[in-house]
């Protein structure tokens, strides 16, 4: 101690730019990710500003103006099988579609990451208990599980989102467990244990920062899956109920018109595609940008 006491008082060190700032600058340099992010932001704005953007009410129909093609005056994107304006319905549909795509993922992230990190760090019996329970959910294909759950609970927005959350928890837990198991073997965790720190302190200070990134990237990629599954549930009549606008449901109700007016019938599908591709590209870009050594 005497040697240390003689040294001058500590001065504020120059801090390297933080980790997240580095991630941000790497993302900004990737045009594909920037474009995907721009699309996502545009979609969110579209959903938020739907009443201002939509030229008509989404549920106002006209029996004499059914299934108009794209470009009809007053109906820039045509009309659906009940004569409602497609453009307005697509804009309003973004609200429920994004909600159902986005809400289940963070909830599942919270539970799945907690389970996975506990299993990965504790190892042994705790790990076996948690992960084998998770495996039970893996026995069912995720679509089937979502359909079975919302079918049992009854149709409705809340039940659909709940069943999607349940579907995603095991997937996120699996990824969290494997990432945590990998980090746990590293010497810096051993060094922290050798310092006498308690397991909870080690998890909070040394494990979380190194595992949340990869788990987050995986969860981002689930947003597109969630949207597609949600659309599927609505398509089957298990999610949103008519006359609410939701892309999956619109795809379902327009399916009878596919021979009459295929371009209009495909529009909700195109939006689902654009949204899910954007989320996937963004999550891929994030994965790349989070690798420090790249």
């Amino acid at each position: 101690m005497s040697v240390l006491a003689a040294s001058p008082p500590a001065l504020r060190a120059e801090r390297s730019p933080g980790y997240w700032r580095g991630v941000g600058s790497r993302i900004a340099r990737d045009p594909v990710v920037v474009a995907a992010l721009a699309v996502i932001v545009a979609l969110v704005l579209m959903a938020l500003l739907a009443p201002e953007l939509a030229p008509m009410a989404p549920d106002k129909g006209s029996m004499i103006r059914r299934l108009k093609p794209i470009g009809t005056p007053g109906y820039p994107l045509g009309s659906d099988e009940l004569g409602r304006d497609m453009l307005s319905r697509l804009i309003y549909g973004a609200r429920l579609s994004l909600l159902m795509g986005v809400v289940p993922v963070p909830v599942a992230f919270l539970f799945g990451a907690t389970l996975g990190i506990v299993a990965g760090y504790a190892g042994g019996l705790v790990n076996a208990l948690i992960m084998r329970t998770v495996d039970v959910f893996y026995a069912f294909p995720s679509v089937l599980l979502a359909v079975a759950l919302s079918g049992t609970l009854g149709s409705g927005l809340g039940n659909a989102m709940f069943s999607l959350t349940v579907v995603f928890i095991p997937q996120i837990a699996r990824v969290a467990e494997s990432v945590t198991t990998g980090v746990r073997k590293l010497d810096y965790i051993d060094a922290a244990r050798a310092s006498g720190a308690r397991p909870l302190t080690i998890v909070l200070e040394h494990v979380l920062g190194n595992v949340l990134g990869p788990i987050f990237v995986f969860a981002t990629s689930l947003v597109s899956v969630s949207m597609i599954l949600a659309s599927g549930l609505s398509f089957l009549g298990l999610g949103v109920r008519p006359p609410d606008a939701e892309w999956g449901l619109m795809l379902n109700t327009l399916r009878t018109a596919i021979y009459v007016n295929p371009a209009v019938a495909a529009l909700p599908g195109v939006l689902i595609l654009i949204t899910s591709v954007s989320f996937n590209l963004f999550s891929d870009g994030l994965r790349g940008a989070m690798d420090v050594r790249s």
Partner: peptide
């Protein structure tokens, strides 16, 4: 491998 890549080195040393 024996240093936490997410911590600055002063934080790594101060942890103990």
């Amino acid at each position: 491998a024996s240093l936490n890549p997410r911590l600055t080195i002063e934080d790594s040393i101060a942890f103990g």
